[in-house]
Design a protein around this nucleic acid. Sequence first.
RNA 1: GCGCCUGUAGCUCAGUGGAUAGAGUGACGGAUUCCGAUUCCGGAGGCCGCAGGUUCAAAUCCUGCCAGGCGCGCCA
Length: 566
Amino acid sequence: MRIIEEIKQQIAQALRAALETAKAKGLLQCQRVPEFIIEIPREKSHGDFAANLALVLAKEAKMPPRKVGEILLAQLDIAGGDVDRVEIAGPGFLNFYLRPDWLYRIPKIIFSLGDRYGSVSIGNGLKVQVEFVSANPTGLLHMGNARGGAIGDSLANLLAFAGYDVSREFYVNDAGNQIQLFGKSLDARYREALGETVAFPADGYHGADIADSARLYIAAYGDALLAEEAEVRERTLAEFALKDKISRIEKTLKDYGIVYDVWFSEASLYTDGKIKETVDWLLKAGHAYEREGAVWLKAPADSEEKDEVLVRSNGLPTYFAADIAYHRDKFQRGFDRVINIWGADHHGHVARMKRAVSLFGYDPDRLTVILMQLVHLMRGDEAVRMSKRAGTYLTLEELMAEVGYDAARYFFVMRNPDSQMEFDLELAKSKTAENPVFYVQYAHARICSILRQAKALGYGLPADPAALDYTVLREETELALLAKLADLPEEVANAALALEPHRLTVYVQELAAAFHLFYTHCRVNTEDAALRAPRLALSQAVAQAIRNVLALGRPCAGRNVSNQCV
RNA sequence: GCGCCUGUAGCUCAGUGGAUAGAGUGACGGAUUCCGAUUCCGGAGGCCGCAGGUUCAAAUCCUGCCAGGCGCGCCA
């Protein structure tokens, strides 16, 4: 139920009719109705809705926009709808002022939809896959993964709420060079732990977790591997540690509120023959060729790009070849749209990937890559120094232990992925007004408290909130709060279309602010029952809306804020 | 050198071509006999990096420049 959308349609239709009438009377000249927008003005004095039709029409009509506006206004028939009056303002905007009746329908809609309030159906059940985190399984999750996890999962939740059929996927890089190096590093730690002195591989993984894995293996199976060939030791240790690491990653992400639909193994692309099949197809289609014992993907003839290696001269496919096979498989699985969340350091890969997708006949616009910039970790004014090479970096597990997962997710989602962001650990764990998470949660807690109070005072809660008379809510702060509530479905639709979950954090803070303002001006638990009941219900509706938005960030998966007050 | 991202209040950041550019925070000044003051209100604080262009209208679109970040492997 998108009441704002309905009203916009109502206004747009009246405007189109006015334009037709004006044309018929010879007052205005234009070929067809131009694109125009109806928006909610920032400035309250500019009405509830504003249309720019006169401005976009001015040129073709060969008249000043203000004059066009006057003509349209004279022909506008608004009788019978929600519009109370229309004014022309500024350069020629038509400002629509509505009777507040439409706002009084909002609480009823919220109560009838409950936790579905705000959901829209713009997705039409389109199948969308969101692939995110896909961290290298040889290590622990870092801040980049934390940001990607928060953004990816919130985006997936948002798209589902907007009517898409969403699948969450983790691509497990359990094959290729880094797994061999992983095995060598493990082997070194294994032998070290058993008393040998070994030279650590030059580019090996230095993290303490590697030694942990080696010790874990020893605890389970002892030193029998020492008798085996190096290759066997490395492979066995890598397999063992990988299994352990992946289940730890899965658990960490689950604690972070993320549950995947699919864990897709890169190694399976080798064993299923999908990489070979893909490379063969490209060779056969003439998009790839062999040179110096390697297989190369041709760059487009009209570009400056270089050809890329798909299969090395040693016969092993590159990551790029595996990724092409993987993306081909995604589309073969029937996804209408594929969204990847990648770190900005992979941006050079985006154009190549989209081109590869198009070689298989898929529209490259069906693949969207959201790149996220770096996270700078701060502790107050001090930067937290981290070195991935030395294995000293803050892990997602440590982050959650320090600031809690709800604050962590909210902070990451709050920022546009395009921007480098600062993450201040001190701020995130502070339970003060400085912290936006607590500002929103406080609004919800305050509502719960008001509802408890109503029961304690013997008032009780409205038995049938949908049947109440809301027309007694006439205070400015009450109307503003209702209008803010009405906005949620629009915010969801716009955020989903733009793939920008961070917009909802802006919205929910505004909603919380509108509630706090209402609270300071209007006493809810007043003795006047005719006023008290709709105010209690309004508060309940706000709590519902807050929960619905926060649920998109899933900060409340286990211990949630819902149902604490009905 | 080429490519991608960013540049908005002291700081952290919103801002889907629209009217007087916003929020939080910091500093300053106020508000509570009463539902959680973790709240609310107020003024102060801006060449929207710079310069052109497109448009009735530009923080937003285009071009160039400056600054910061990240890429440009038979790594992933």
